[in-house]
Amino acid sequence: MRRFLLFLPLLIALVLGVVLFAGIGKDPTKLESALVGKPVPTFALQDLHDSQQQLDESLFKGKVQLLNVWGTWCPACRDEHDDLIWLAREKGVSIIGLNYKDTRTEALAWLERLGDPYSASIYDPKGTLGFDLGVYGAPETFVIDAAGVVRYRHVGVVDQNVWKDVLLPVINEARGNG
């Protein structure tokens, strides 16, 4: 018994070491979305390109799509823009844009200048849909399945590696089940 007690500190140190080591390299700023497994919240917002046109959650029904949250005020959104265009044009991915807390003129000028990867663009100047989606920092990219249910949320820039390693597997799974 007494001999066992001598080893107790070593044991505690080992257990702590394993637990703490497991935490190294995890990015605490990336949170899993609370909406995973839930349908896209209901909304009624204008089309970015046409203020007469109203868009709602039926936009997400029918096929697996990405929902990309962006704004012209967000530098990282500029970084991922070319990769989004690559995804839309080369990979044939349908991406819905959510223009978040932005102005219509600036957003349209940005799409005019850099190209438009979005099959539809929602205009959310007050960030109401963004708030309901739990968006806390653009860019964020959601994978939405054919039933309009959120499957995954990626916080941060989407590039070819993120596509290959993170988004594509989720999309394939969503397609298999949908």
């Binding site: 949170l31 899993e32 979305s33 708030f131 989606l133 739990g134 806390y136």
Partner: peptide
Amino acid sequence: LVARFGEF
């Protein structure tokens, strides 16, 4: 708020 942003 938890429903939107999670238990976090």
